[in-house]
């Protein structure tokens, strides 16, 4: 068993964890650090339920090994506090069961930060990384557009 003791900077806190080389970041943040906001879905990079931020960009945490996370700024849904995108999801009822919601919010939050002037095609391109089995997607799109607009006017 190949073990590594590594430092991960998650939600602005330095964490020391001992991981197997083959542990995904998703596994480590959920099972070892108790951050269960990122959800396991397909575990294959297809659904986006496990999306977190790495250096501000969205990242599917099932596509990353914990050992790759050293030296990176990692943010999970637990690290976002009452952000415009979270408020917009509540206001626009952009979820039903909520399983996909942390992933969509992390993706949407990053979009707001990285592409504040995103046009419709950019919004679509980013949101296509996540799958929702309950909503019609239109509420999610509305919430993202609302947050983008609010961001521009503030």
């Amino acid at each position: 068993m190949k073990l590594h003791t590594i430092q991960l900077k998650i939600n602005d806190e330095q964490q020391t964890v001992t991981v197997r080389s083959g542990d995904t970041l998703l596994y480590t943040i959920r099972k070892q650090l108790g951050l269960t906001g990122a959800k396991p879905g397909c575990l294959n990079g297809d659904c986006g339920a496990c999306t977190i931020h790495v250096d501000g960009w969205p990242m599917k945490s099932c596509l990353m090994m914990a050992v790759e996370g050293e030296g990176k700024q990692i943010t999970t849904i637990e690290g976002l506090k009452d952000t415009p995108i979270q408020q917009a999801f509540v206001q626009h009822f952009a979820f039903q069961c909520g399983y996909c919601t942390p992933g969509f919010i992390m993706n949407g939050h990053s979009l707001l930060q990285k592409k504040p002037d995103a046009d419709d095609s950019t919004i679509k391109e980013w949101l296509e990384s996540n799958i929702c089995r309950c909503t019609s997607y239109s509420e999610i799109e509305k919430a993202i557009k609302f947050a983008l607009e609010k961001n521009k006017s503030s």
Partner: peptide
């Protein structure tokens, strides 16, 4: 390459 996978996966 913009058409490969999806936006988030292309970040990796």
């Amino acid at each position: 390459s913009k058409q490969i996978a999806d936006h988030t996966a292309r970040g990796k």
